[in-house]
Design a protein around this nucleic acid. Structure first.
Lengths: 247, 247
DNA sequence: CAGTGGTCTAGACCACCGA
DNA sequence: CGGTGGTCTAGACCACTGC
C-alpha cells in the first residue's frame, strides 16, 4: 500500500492514495475517520492527520468533531486564481469526472476575434466550442479561438476527455506563459440556460481570457460558467517570497 | 507565560505571544528555532510547530532546514490589499465621484460571522453596511464585520467619503496583510435590486473576503457588486504569478 | 454510550546547511 | 560538526456529536 522505502513522505503517499480512492468513487458519502485510517494504513495518527489536513483545507472532505466524516460534495468547483488554471484540471482535482461535448471544431475566420488577438481579420482561426460537464452535469460553455497557423494540428484531436492545453503542448509544443482575464457576472440567455440546464434564478460568470506564448497572443477564450457550481478564489499576501502551499 | 488552565489552546497562546514579541521588535533579524522555543515555553515540539505553522504560512517568519530562522521583512510599504476596493477609488481617478451611504454602523454579535472569523459566537463585532455609489449611481452593497476589540474606535468615524482601511490603519494601527476572497455570480434579490437600482436582467458579483492581520482574522466582508458596471480582471505570468487589478 | 476530531507529550531518525 | 526543520511513532486526555 505505502512504500516506506520510497523517498516520498508517508503522509503524501497516503494523501495521494486517498485522492485516488476519492476519484474512483470509493467513498460515496461517508469517509473513514482518522483512527480507521491508522489501522488500514498502519501509520501513526499524526501521519494520518497531516495527510488529511490538505484534503480538508481543499474542501474535499468535511470533518467535524463528533460527527461522521463525509465527502464534501459541494456542488461547485472552486477555482483558485493563483495559477494558469485549466478548467479540466480543477474539475478533476475535486474528484469529479470531467467530460466535454464538442459542439464545434473547425477552422474559420472571424474579424472580431482576430482583432482581440492582434491578427488580420481574415486570419484563419481554429475554433472549438464545448459544453463542459462535471459528473455529467453541465458546468460551462467554452468557446476558444487559436490561430490556425499554430493550432491546425488540433483539428482531429478528441477533446471529449482531455485538456486543450495538454493537447496544445503535446502536438505543437506551445505553452501559455501569460494570460489576462476579465470576469463579469451575467444572466444567461434562454438558449444558454437551456444548454447548461440551470435553474431560472441562476447567474453565470462570463470569463474572457487572452492567452499568450512567448509574447504572441495565441488564445482568445470565452467561458460561461454556471454561478451555482463555480467559485473563483483569490489569495493575497503582502509578504514577499510568499510560498503557496503544495497541493 | 502560557496559561495551561485557560481554554485557549496552548499553540494559539504561543502563536499570539510570538506575534506580540514580533511586533515589539524583540526579534530584529534572527528568530528562535523550534527546540529553543520548546525550552523557553516548556511545551512539546509538536505544539511549537503548530504555532509556527501559521507564522510561516503568513510569511512572518522564514525558516529553512539547516539555516538560521529569520524574521521575514515584509515590504514595509502600503497595504496593496485594496485591489478590489481601490476599484472604487479608481472610479474617482476616472473622473467620477465615489460616495457611500452608511446604512448601519453599530456593534453587535453574530454567531455566523464570528464563526468565519474563528471567534466565539458572542464576540461583539463592529458592523458597517454601506451603499456605495459612483456619481450618485449605486454600485455595490458592502457589509463588513470586524472584532469590536480592534475596531471599536471606528464607531464614530464618517465613512461617507473615506476608505475603511485608511480609517482602520489611522485609528488602530491595524493593517491587513493577507486576505482570501471567493467570487461568485448571483442574481440579486428584489430588495437588493431596488437598492442598487439596477435593471431586472442584471446579475451581480458576490464577493466574500476574509482579511487577516499578523495571522489573525480581523475582517469578514461581503460585497454585492452590480455586474453591469464592474469587471474583475486577473493577470497571470509564469514569472510573476497572478495579480488582480481593477478596471 | 462509542466514535469523532482537537490537543499535547516525549521520544526518535533523517536530510540539510553553515561554520 | 552542531543546529536546523521534516518526518514519524506510540501513547494520552479532552470536548463534542449522535444514538
Amino acid at each position: 500500500m505505502l512504500d516506506r522505502t520510497h523517498p516520498t513522505p508517508l503522509w503524501r503517499q497516503l494523501q495521494n492514495d486517498l485522492i485516488r480512492r476519492l476519484r474512483a468513487g470509493e467513498f460515496t458519502d461517508t469517509f473513514p475517520g482518522e483512527l480507521t485510517l491508522v489501522d488500514t494504513y498502519r501509520v501513526s495518527r499524526h501521519t494520518v492527520r497531516q495527510a488529511l489536513r490538505h484534503l480538508r483545507e481543499e474542501g474535499l472532505v468535511a470533518a467535524t468533531r463528533g460527527r461522521q466524516p463525509r465527502v464534501a460534495h459541494t456542488a461547485e468547483v472552486v477555482q483558485p486564481l493563483d495559477t494558469l488554471y485549466s478548467l479540466f484540471a480543477s474539475v478533476e482535482a475535486t474528484g469529479r469526472t470531467q467530460t466535454s461535448q464538442v459542439r464545434v471544431l473547425d477552422i474559420r475566420a472571424d474579424g472580431v476575434i482576430a482583432d482581440q488577438l492582434d491578427l488580420e481579420g481574415s486570419t484563419p482561426l481554429l475554433h472549438l466550442e464545448r459544453l463542459r460537464l462535471a459528473d455529467d452535469e453541465p458546468l460551462a460553455i467554452d468557446r476558444v479561438w487559436l490561430p490556425a497557423a499554430i493550432a491546425a494540428p488540433l483539428l482531429d484531436a478528441d477533446f471529449s476527455r482531455t485538456s486543450l492545453y495538454a493537447v496544445l503542448a503535446d502536438r505543437t509544443g506551445t505553452r501559455l506563459d501569460h494570460s489576462s482575464e476579465n470576469i463579469r457576472a451575467v444572466i444567461p440567455t434562454g438558449a444558454e440556460r437551456a444548454l447548461l440546464r440551470c435553474p431560472a434564478d441562476t447567474a453565470c460568470l462570463s470569463i474572457h481570457r487572452r492567452g499568450e506564448s512567448a509574447g504572441r497572443p495565441v488564445e482568445w477564450r470565452h467561458t460561461l460558467v454556471r454561478g451555482d457550481r463555480y467559485t473563483v478564489t483569490a489569495e493575497f499576501s503582502v509578504t514577499e517570497g510568499y510560498q503557496r502551499r503544495p497541493i
